[in-house]
C-alpha cells in the first residue's frame, strides 16, 4: 500500500514540475524555428529590425502565401496564424510581442467574421506553446470572465495543452519547421470541385453581430497600435462566392467597416464581398480607406472548403494582394 501511494505521489510531483517548466519555458523550443512568436522574438533580439506582421486565423494560414510575400514585399514579412484566432487573442499577441521587444512597422489583421462573432474562446492550443505563463494567465482571466469555462478548460490549457507536440518534438519539429517559411505554412492543399463542395457543410455563425468583448478588443488593438506608431490594416481573405453573399456575413463585415472608418483604418476586401456589401448597405464604402483585391471566388479549385483556400488560390490571392499593397493593381 505504501509503495503504491509513494509511486502515485512521486509521479504527480514529476507531472507538476513538468507542467510548471512547460508553461514557462516550452516556448524556447521554437527559438530557431521558421514559425511562431518565439522565433520572431529571438530573431528581433539577434537582428533588430522593424517587421510587418500578418496576424490572423487559419484564413491567413491557408490564404496568405509566405513565399509570395517574400518575393513581392521583402524579408520583413512574418505570418502568425492560429486556428480560430479571435480579436481578444490578437490583442494579447501584439501586446506580448511588443513587451518582448519586437519592433513592428505594420500589422495586417485578419477580418475573420466567424471568430469576431464568437464569445472569447481558446481555439488553437499551439499559441500556448509559443508564450509564457503570464500570457496564459491573461488569456485564462479573460476566458474566466465569460463564465463559460470550467476546470476542464483550465486543465486543458495549463496541463494538457501541447504535451503531444513536446513529447514528439524530435519528429514533429523537423517536419513542421521544414514546411514553414516566415511563419507561413508551405503545405500543399488541393482544390475542390463544385460537387465536392456540395458534399461538405457550410460554416455557420451563431451570432449576427461582432461579440461585444471582441469589439472592445478590436478598439483596444487599434489604440495599442496607434500608441506604438504601428500601421494597422485589415484584410478579408476571399471566401467561396456563396459565403461572401450571405447576409449575416455581410452584416458583420459591415460592422467591421463602420469601426475601421471611425478610426480611419485601411482595409482590403475581396471584390465579390465589396460588390455584395454595396448591394447590402445600399452605399459605397469609404474610398480612401478601402482597397479591393480581385479574386475569382467562384472557382472551386481555389478553395479547400467554403472558407479556406487551396494552395493555388492562396498563391494567386497573395500575389494580387501584394501587387495592390505595392500599388500595381
Amino acid at each position: 500500500m505504501k509503495k503504491i501511494i509513494r509511486t502515485i505521489l512521486l509521479t504527480l510531483m514529476i507531472c507538476f514540475i513538468y507542467i510548471v517548466i512547460k508553461n514557462e519555458y516550452a516556448r524556447l523550443l521554437l527559438a530557431n524555428a521558421n514559425f511562431g512568436m518565439e522565433a520572431l522574438i529571438t530573431e528581433s533580439k539577434k537582428n533588430p529590425k522593424e517587421v510587418n506582421l500578418w496576424i490572423g486565423s487559419s484564413m491567413f494560414r491557408m490564404g496568405i502565401d509566405s513565399n509570395s510575400l517574400y518575393n513581392q514585399l521583402g524579408e520583413n514579412e512574418f505570418i502568425l496564424a492560429y486556428n480560430g484566432n479571435q480579436p481578444y487573442l490578437e490583442f494579447y499577441e501584439i501586446e506580448y510581442l511588443l513587451n518582448s521587444g519586437v519592433e513592428i512597422n505594420q500589422i495586417y489583421l485578419d477580418m475573420y467574421v466567424y471568430a469576431a462573432a464568437s464569445e472569447p474562446a481558446l481555439g488553437d492550443l499551439r499559441l500556448l506553446l509559443q508564450t509564457d505563463t503570464d500570457f496564459k494567465n491573461k488569456v485564462w482571466k479573460e476566458l474566466h470572465q465569460t463564465g463559460k469555462v470550467g476546470f476542464k478548460d483550465f486543465w486543458e490549457m495549463y496541463v494538457g495543452a501541447n504535451n503531444d507536440v513536446i513529447f514528439a518534438w524530435p519528429f514533429y519539429y523537423p517536419l513542421v519547421n521544414q514546411a514553414s517559411f516566415q511563419g507561413g505554412n508551405l503545405r500543399t492543399v488541393g482544390g475542390m470541385t463544385t460537387d465536392s463542395l456540395n458534399n461538405i457543410d457550410k460554416p455557420t455563425v451563431s451570432e449576427t453581430v461582432i461579440n461585444s468583448k471582441q469589439m472592445d478588443y478590436l478598439i483596444k488593438m487599434i489604440k495599442l497600435c496607434q500608441n506604438n506608431n504601428i500601421i494597422l490594416k485589415f484584410v478579408e481573405t476571399p471566401k467561396y462566392y456563396e459565403i461572401s453573399q450571405d447576409n449575416i456575413y455581410l452584416k458583420i463585415i459591415n460592422e467591421y467597416i463602420n469601426l475601421l472608418d471611425e478610426y480611419h483604418i485601411e482595409y482590403y476586401l475581396s471584390n465579390y464581398t465589396y460588390e455584395a456589401l454595396i448591394k447590402y448597405t445600399q452605399k459605397e464604402p469609404n474610398c480612401e480607406k478601402n482597397h479591393i483585391v480581385l479574386f475569382n471566388s467562384k472557382e472551386p479549385a481555389f478553395f479547400s472548403d467554403y472558407i479556406h483556400m487551396s494552395s493555388d488560390g492562396k498563391v494567386k490571392y497573395t500575389i494580387n494582394l501584394t501587387k495592390l499593397i505595392n500599388g500595381f493593381q
Binding site: I4, T7, I8, T11, C15, K152, G160, D164, F167
Partner: peptide, 18 residues
C-alpha cells in the same frame, strides 16, 4: 509499480479530457 507510475504520468499529461 513502474507501470503504474508511467500510466499515471500519461493519464495526467496525455489523457483526453471530456
Amino acid at each position: 509499480l513502474l507501470w503504474t507510475g508511467v500510466f499515471l504520468f500519461c493519464i495526467v499529461l496525455l489523457g483526453i479530457t471530456g
